[in-house]
Amino acid sequence: MITLYDYELSGNCYKLRLLMSFLGIDHKTVPIDFYPGREHKSEWFLKLNPLGQLPVIEDDGLILRDAQAILVYLASKYDPSGKWYPRDNPALLGEISQWLAFADGITATASAARLHDALFYDFDIDAARAGAHRLFRILDEHLWFGEQQGRDWICSAAHPTIADIACFPYIMLSEEGGIPRQDYPAIRRWCDRVKRIKGFIVMSGVFPAGPARAAA
C-alpha cells in the first residue's frame, strides 16, 4: 500500500490526497509534525527526503518526493482511464509539464505568503504577494479565454488533468496569505469546477461547492 508522509495543513500534501481520492486509491498516512515540531527537518525524515520537504510517498519500495513528481507517478501508475496524465498525448504532456512548473511558482509565492502569515516564516511578504498576483493574473486570463472557447480546465483537454490538481490548493488557500481572489473571477469559477469533480475532498481552509445545476 502507498504510504503518504502527510501534513494536514500542507497544500502540497493535499494535492496527493486529492488525486488519490479522485482515483479511489487506498493509502496509509504517516502524519508529520511540520509545525511547530519541524519533524520534516528531523534526522530520520532527512533520510527520506534530504530536502526536508513534504510530501513524500513510499510505494512498492520506491521513495518519491515533490508533489508534482508524485502526481505524475500516481496518475501514470494508477489511473486506468489515462486522463489525468495522458501518456500517449505529447502535446498535452507538454502543456501539463508547463503548468506543473507554474504550480511550483504558485507554491513559491502564494504558499510562501501563507507560511509567513500563518506559521510565522521569515519571508519577504510583499514580494510573495506581488508574485502570486502576477501568476494569478496570467492564469485568470488563460482560464477566461478558455471559457470563451469552451474549455473548462487548465490544459486543452475536455477533462481535468494533474495540472488542475497541482494549481488548485495554494490558489484556494491564498486568502490565508493575504492574497484576495476577487479580481480573478475566471479562477473563482474554475475553483467551483474543480470542487465538483467526483471524489473531491476538502482540507482545512478549503470549502466544498454545492452541486451543479442538473441539465434541464
Binding site: E147, R181, Q182, P185, R188, R189, D192, A209, G210, P211, A212, R213
Partner: peptide, 16 residues
C-alpha cells in the same frame, strides 16, 4: 459590477 458571463448558475461572484 460584473459581466453577465461572470454569473453562471450555481456560482457566487465576489464584487465590489
Amino acid at each position: 459590477i460584473a459581466a453577465a458571463h461572470d454569473l453562471p448558475f450555481r456560482h457566487v461572484f465576489h464584487g465590489q
